[in-house]
Design a protein around this nucleic acid. Structure first.
Lengths: 333, 333
DNA sequence: TTGAAAGCGCTAACAT
DNA sequence: ATGTTAGCGCTTTCAA
């Protein structure tokens, strides 16, 4: 920068002013400086600026894994939303492991991120205190904690209830659930399963507990394994609720392999509305949690916090939408 | 850091030494300093370190979009590989747009990344000069350029040839191709299509040009649209080669909708071996480009460059593998 | 094995 | 509208 200043015959501060779009510069000076910058191939050193300003223009995004389509599509949306605000995104994969999630919180990249978007999956309610960090943060996804942080939430409860009600309306009464996490009380699995049970109860349908099948990480393979196990158990069912889309798709795979017709023999619904759900065979009935809105709302909220807003913590619930597709209502052709 | 030094009764430099694992410190001093760090909740300011050392511990990853499963899974692998080297990944989405790709090159985040992994899709051979940048860089994916940069390549040619040969071995002779980019000479689409043609020629099969269908971005939806167009044209075919998996899956969707049986009426193959290919209905025959190996090799190469290795540019071709699945060979049940 | 001094490149605050 | 001064928090000499 000094070199540029010399080359242009101005002070370093003027160069800095030009770089930052400071308005009160004579146009002639500005052009002169710009020319020198060009001539010398000068590039601003962000580390230096950050050191001085305490800001990096980077926000962190902590998600389980990018090989989970929901989170990949969420990351895509977040990166896009951040760009609108001139921010870059650093992604940290936590693997939904508690220790790694705590790591992402405790050491927000050594002052290298101005804010953090955090999708907690491994944390429990006892960990709420860890969320009191000095870096601005917005939680994404589940209503796990009431408390010390902003939260942009999926409407898990009403979304899942809508899916279950849809299956009930189709006359299905024996609904298998894929992807429960027994023992978990907070967390997506517990919330969605609870909402499912409440919808059943409301309709006066008794739940069949052996139709609820556990699945660890919500990959397709685990959905497939869970369905194999369910079939092996000999239990009868006329519908399947995958607690997310990949589980449902894995289950569909196995059902098809075993000769079940979908939706005639078994109707299947999921949750997330990942891109694939519109193109799978059959297309998948699922709950769209409003990914794009989640991303823009979360980034907006975070930016406000980064700008010093220290008003009370807010919880935002994004409206969901149920997409009825072939896996429950068949093809219309 | 000064505060920590005061608290521990040592000089800032000693604290720095402790932070950096400098070996020649008395254990007692080390523990004292560690205690003070803990007591004061001290966190190293990376911006400051970077300013001094010129290193950030961050590498950039420039890919088209994370909503393309291949790139999401690649990013996942890269983040994992980078972690092994203590590096963090900043993802830049270029949208496969030339201008944005040039942007990622010209302004590698203002010295904020120590190196760059770059998946060029929008650049042409005329842009080779732009690849001569001072930041260490490794190109990922396609053999677009011979030249000024390290390159970890998918074996597009042999992979595609294997897929085509597989279709030919099944007795298919009228193979539709989904996803061509007419006018493109370098780039994935052109390379794979060219390889397909060469495999046909070698087998003495005459290509049917109207069976090659264009598709812009390689999304499922574009694969579906392309297949609709192909069917509307009335052309007859007994196989489909999707130039990537999502195109193939989109095409399968449409074929199924129109009542074609796969693979009996039409065999379908793709390229990428995304996770979904193992779980779709039918499962998808596809070419596995060795994503994990690509990621680890690329990060390794990049780390060497970042450590000052300035030997000649290297080109690494990762071996592929053809996975034969239901979409071409049917179910074995 | 530890400390002192200097400076990385930038910008905030204050001149002018 | 532009320049001066000082210092962000760390590490790299070099000395002790």
């Amino acid at each position: 920068m000094r070199d540029v200043a010399l080359h242009a015959g101005v002070s370093p501060k003027t160069v800095s002013n030009v770089m930052n779009g400071y308005p009160y510069i004579r146009e002639a000076t500005r052009l002169k400086v710009l020319a020198s910058i060009e001539a010398l191939g000068y590039q601003l050193n962000l580390s230096a600026r950050n050191l001085k300003s305490g800001r990096t223009g980077i926000i962190g995004l902590a998600v389980p894994r990018l090989n989970l389509p929901y989170f990949a599509e969420l990351a895509d949306a977040v990166i896009g939303a951040a760009e609108e605000h001139g921010l870059t995104v650093m992604i940290e994969q936590t693997g939904a492991v508690r220790e790694r999630e705590l790591g992402a919180l405790s050491r927000p990249r050594g002052h290298l991120v101005d804010g953090l978007l955090f999708s907690p999956l491994g944390l429990g309610p006892d960990d709420a205190d860890y969320l009191r960090i000095s870096t601005p943060m917005v939680l994404l996804g589940e209503r796990i904690f009431h408390g010390p942080a902003d939260h942009v939430m999926i409407d898990n409860v009403n979304g899942t209830r809508a899916a279950t009600q849809h299956l009930l309306q189709l006359g299905r009464r024996r609904i298998a659930v894929i992807g429960t996490h027994p023992g978990e009380v907070v967390g997506t699995a517990a919330i969605r399963y609870g909402a499912h049970l409440s919808a059943l109860a409301e309709a006066g349908v008794k739940p069949v507990h052996k139709l609820a099948v556990e699945a660890g990480p919500w990959h397709r393979s685990n959905g497939a394994d869970a369905m194999e196990k369910l079939l092996a158990s000999g239990a009868k069912f006329d519908a399947v609720l995958g607690l997310n889309d990949t589980l449902a798709l894995g289950a569909i795979r196995v059902l098809t392999k075993h000769g079940f017709r979908i939706p005639d023999d078994v109707a299947v619904a999921g949750f997330d509305d990942i891109d694939e759900a519109s193109f799978s065979t059959p297309t998948l009935t699922t709950v769209d949690p409003g990914r794009a809105q989640i991303a823009t709302a979360a980034v907006e909220l975070l930016v406000e916090r980064m700008n010093g807003d220290d008003s009370d913590h807010r919880e935002l619930v994004i409206p969901f939408e149920l997409h009825r597709r072939e896996s429950t209502i068949g093809s219309n052709s």
